[in-house]
């Protein structure tokens, strides 16, 4: 899996909220075509990054046992453009989780060098939990999940839903070599 549209998590509260960052660089291929001589971070890829932020939050909540897919974007409002060198901050909150799917709201900000955050986008989206008819399909391997979550610092910053207890890696992760 290389479709990473965020770099690391800064806040991760299981099943509740997450904050991730995405550092935009001119080395990303799409920046050379979007647009020639005027590189702008595509808003569609910002949406993907926000979907990954809340999607991984939900995957962790279900301890990676459920197949979670982006199902619907209810609202997406962008207030400005983001350029190479900008750091985007995605702040997602899970509004509702049930066995069929989830509703999340998120705001994206551009973090200025002085730490100030300027509102960039406001988004509401839904993720579906795939039912048993997809049980023969594997979304990601346990190893993929572990590498992804560890590399993105989830278990360094993560806490349980109570906001206090440190988030522990599931046993399946520990048993991998």
């Amino acid at each position: 899996m290389r479709w990473f549209w965020l770099d690391k998590f800064e806040v991760f509260q299981s099943g509740v909220k997450a904050q991730a960052i995405k550092c935009i660089t001119l080395a990303e291929d799409h920046m050379h075509d979007h647009f020639p001589f005027y590189p702008v971070m595509p808003h569609s890829l910002v949406l993907e990054g926000i979907a990954q932020t809340s999607g991984l939050l939900i995957c962790e909540y279900y301890k990676y046992k459920q197949k979670v897919v982006l199902a619907k974007i209810n609202k997406a409002v962008f207030h400005c453009l983001a350029f190479p060198g900008d750091t985007l901050v995605y702040k997602a909150t899970v509004e509702r989780i049930d066995e069929n799917g989830t509703v999340s709201s998120a705001s994206a900000y551009i973090r200025k060098p002085n730490g100030e955050e300027v509102l960039f986008a406001e988004v509401e989206m839904m993720h579906a939990i795939l039912d048993d008819s997809y049980s023969d399909k594997k979304q990601f391997s346990t190893r993929d999940y572990r590498n992804l979550m560890v590399n993105m610092k989830v278990y360094e910053v993560g806490v349980e839903a109570d906001g206090v207890t440190r988030l522990a890696e599931p046993e399946e992760f520990k048993n991998l070599d």
């Binding site: 199902a71 619907k72 209810n74 509004e95 509702r96 069929n100 799917g101 509703v103 839904m126 579906a128």
Partner: peptide
Amino acid sequence: ESIDFLDIVF
């Protein structure tokens, strides 16, 4: 569609 019902209920 089915996912819309979750949205509507919420």
